[in-house]
Simulated scan of single mutants.
Amino acid sequence: MILIACADRGWGIGYKNRLLFSIPEDMSFFRQITAGKTVVMGRKTFESLKVKPLSGRRNILLTRNRSFVFEGVEIVHSTKELAELTQNTKSEDIVVIGGSQVYKQLMEYCDTAYITKVFAESPADSFLPDFDSLEDWKVAEMSDIKEHNGLKYRFVTYKRTPQQSRVCPGTDSI
């Protein structure tokens, strides 16, 4: 599985159900990584999309709300249900896109993380773990520093060290 996010200097990713930054190159990178793949998100992240599935992708929503339904979105209520639903999907074709609770639930099944690291801080109420301090994650690639409207950022690819990779019980797809 792949994880993708944009985080500030303190690993903040959102505030009041909105992204912290709007960087066109980051949005383009997100589309490039997720195009044609299965995206997994939480209900709040889905609602932040103005309540419509992302086009050109298989949309799976992980939520505890058993009454939530929406056309064009597959709903699961646990990692076990997610594993069953994606059992015929290659792990590298599943991209976790948020929010913070879903990242926490699924991070242990991910082996790659694409993080747009913004060199600024913004008020945040949802966060990612600090990948730079996690022993089982290492920087694999890093872009040059880029800038948009005075905001500096870079694309960083983290890889989980092989001995730390984990498979969800009962499946080899997560």
Rank of each mutant, 00 (worst) to 15 (best):
R9V: 07
G10I: 11
Y15E: 06
Y15Q: 11
R18M: 09
S28A: 14
S28C: 03
F29R: 15
I33G: 00
T34S: 10
T34H: 07
T34M: 07
T34G: 04
R43A: 00
R43Q: 01
S48N: 01
V51R: 12
K52V: 05
I60W: 07
I60M: 08
N65L: 14
S67W: 04
S67I: 09
S67Y: 03
F68E: 09
G72S: 02
V73S: 06
V73D: 03
E74S: 14
H77T: 06
S78R: 12
T79F: 13
E81G: 04
E84W: 12
Q87K: 15
T89C: 10
E92C: 11
I94Y: 03
V95Y: 05
G98V: 09
V102H: 03
Y103H: 09
Q105N: 09
Y109P: 11
A120I: 11
S122L: 08
D125I: 13
S126F: 08
L128I: 09
P129W: 06
F131I: 06
S133M: 12
L134W: 05
L134N: 02
D136A: 08
D136R: 13
K138I: 15
K138N: 14
D144R: 14
I145R: 10
K146Q: 12
K152E: 08
K152D: 01
F155H: 05
F155K: 04
R160M: 07
V167F: 12
V167A: 11
C168M: 05
C168T: 02
D172N: 14
S173L: 00
S173P: 00
